[in-house]
Amino acid sequence: MNIELIHTEADYQAALRRIRALWEAEPHTPQADELEIWSMLVNKYEEEHFPIEEPDPIEYLKIRMEELGLSQEDLVPYMGNKGNVSKVLNRKRSLSLQMIRNLHRGLNLSLEALIAEPIQAG
């Protein structure tokens, strides 16, 4: 087992090939241990070189509304009134701290996604 840190794209591709070769390793074997080490190294490289942006809170809210089958009217109890809901969804108003708390508690929406920096309306 010759494991080295991943520094380059070539190292990364080689590590992915090795992971594919070890994918069917039986648990509690040296091959399974090697697979786990390579996976951790690849994960670290990907976090550093391919970071995932936090979602925009308004897009997140719209996606969750669709997934949960909610209408704008369903958000009124969490956001105060229809005008607030409309303004927020149309990026005319930011989510308030109280709205964020209500959406998180009432609909179990992600705090991290709700407090992310919104994309400004163009």
Rank of each mutant, 00 (worst) to 15 (best):
M79D: 10
N102Q: 08
M65I: 05
L68V: 05
N90W: 01
Y78R: 05
I63C: 06
R91S: 10
L107S: 07
Q13W: 00
E53M: 01
M65T: 08
N81D: 15
L89H: 14
L61G: 04
L70N: 10
T8L: 06
E24L: 15
V88G: 05
V76D: 02
E66D: 15
D11V: 08
L95G: 12
L41C: 06
G80H: 04
N2S: 12
A32H: 11
E53Y: 10
A121L: 11
L5N: 14
E46N: 03
K82F: 11
N102W: 13
F50R: 10
L109G: 00
F50A: 04
L22R: 01
A15V: 08
L89F: 09
L89M: 14
M65N: 09
K82N: 06
Q120W: 00
A113S: 14
L70C: 10
A15E: 07
P30W: 02
I115F: 08
H49T: 07
R20Q: 14
T29K: 14
Q31S: 12
L35Q: 01
Q31Y: 07
K44M: 05
A32Q: 14
K92Y: 08
D11A: 10
E54Y: 13
L114M: 09
R105M: 09
P55I: 11
K62S: 02
L41K: 09
I6C: 10
R101C: 12
I100C: 01
H28C: 01
L111A: 09
P51Q: 11
S71G: 05
R105A: 10
M99L: 04
L89I: 10
M1S: 11
D33C: 07
Y60P: 03
N108E: 11
N108S: 11
G83Q: 13
P55F: 00
S39H: 05
